[in-house]
């Protein structure tokens, strides 16, 4: 009983410290202290998103971030960089970024200064550029085997046939065994069935209006659809990146199309005005 009290007090103090240092209170920065302290479970610190993950967002698993159009790659990369930076807070080690050759043709390349702005240290990245998809798949498999890596990002274009259920399931198992954050960054692809724990669809959205600057660009906003979630429900949100606090925050949109269907369920996410239904719940 006493221990429990002390524990709670400790948590409260940590919370207070975190509030002073605003950065730590923000997105995905705080590993849950109950039970695991290894960073395997992270919080988004956005009530609406944390609500759909029963037991927290599993960092050490296979995730997929995809965008439909080639020009959305910026939005998808930015979201993944923020997500990765959040998940890597507790984990030491390098991150391997494997780039399918098809992505390099028209997609440009990663800009380290831009990644650093999302809190991701570019010096941690190892960029692997194989000559063909087969080699890229082999490289991702080898990287997932390495226990000292903190994360593996596999960037593919479209839906290659040999990157199927079996390949993704293997990655998922390795991620769970070795404690790695493994993500597929799919550029311009369709949604397809695979073993990923979550699948996010990211689209750029007009930025928040900045009242101080006329016609200026405010906080950047992303349209986020959680298309697949093995640990709970799916959802649809608009999030904004706050450079001051260095984290994503919920950006309530001013329109509500329809009441969310899923929020009527008893075990659903807490009702939020801005949660809206979408047609493609998987």
């Amino acid at each position: 009983m006493q221990g429990n009290n002390a524990h709670r007090q400790m948590e409260a103090l940590q919370e207070a410290v975190a509030k002073v240092d605003g950065r730590h209170a923000s997105f995905a920065r705080r590993a849950r202290s109950r039970g695991h302290n290894d960073g395997s479970i992270v919080d988004f610190d956005i009530a609406a998103i944390d609500g759909v993950f029963k037991g927290g967002f599993p960092a050490f698993a296979l995730h997929e971030v995809r965008c439909s159009l080639t020009r959305d790659i910026g939005a998808a990369t930015g979201f993944l960089a923020g997500l990765l930076a959040g998940c890597m807070q507790q984990r030491q080690g390098r991150i391997v970024w494997i780039c399918d050759p098809a992505c390099r043709l028209d997609g440009g390349q990663l800009f380290p200064a831009g990644l650093a702005m999302f809190g991701l240290d570019p010096a941690r990245l190892v960029v692997v550029q194989p000559v063909d998809l087969k080699a890229a798949l082999w490289a991702s498999d080898e990287a997932a085997k390495c226990q000292e890596l903190a994360g593996v990002i596999f960037q593919v274009k479209g839906n290659p046939r040999n990157f199927d259920m079996t390949a993704t399931r293997r990655l998922m198992l390795k991620a769970q065994q070795n404690g790695q954050f493994i993500a597929i960054l799919r550029q311009g692809g369709e949604e397809e069935a695979n073993a990923a724990a979550t699948r996010w669809h990211v689209r750029a959205q007009p930025s928040m209006v900045d009242p101080d600057i006329q016609r200026g660009i405010g906080l950047l906003q992303l349209n986020l659809v959680l298309e697949r979630n093995r640990h709970g429900q799916t959802g649809h949100w608009t999030i904004a990146w706050n450079q001051k606090t260095h984290g994503f925050e919920h950006a309530p949109t001013h329109y509500v199309d329809r009441p969310a269907l899923s929020s009527d369920r008893s075990d659903g996410a807490p009702q939020m005005g801005q949660v809206m239904a979408f047609e493609r719940a998987s």
Binding site: G74, F111, A116, Q243
Partner: peptide, 28 residues
């Protein structure tokens, strides 16, 4: 290298702009 990048990063965190000034994808 790590120090170099982080310094760069800190510059923006402090009194730097509150917006992202550099893109994540750059065309060579």
């Amino acid at each position: 290298q790590a120090v170099l990048w982080r310094q760069d990063n800190h510059g923006h965190e402090g009194d730097g702009p509150a917006v992202l000034t550099r893109p994540v994808i750059l065309f060579e």
